[in-house]
Amino acid sequence: MTVCVNRYRCGYCGACVGVCPNAAIELVETWVSVNDKACDDCSACVSICPIGALEVRGE
């Protein structure tokens, strides 16, 4: 499983970074980068996204 960011939809607001319990997400200027190694697929980021740009995908 892995969190995927749809860059074409993302509004780079950083809400996902704020709720990530593992500090696995970073808002780098205008894109969101996910550190797969730190991510534990809790999907807090997916639910919080105001614009629906994140999803958890299976391998």
Binding site: C13, G14, A15, V17, G18, V19, C20, P21, A23, E26, L27, A44, S47, I48
Partner: peptide
């Protein structure tokens, strides 16, 4: 809101939903 500086220094700023 996307602060990491605090977390890097060991301050827990994680927001619950």
């Amino acid at each position: 809101v996307e602060s990491l500086v605090g977390r890097w220094a060991g301050i827990n700023t994680t927001l619950a939903p």
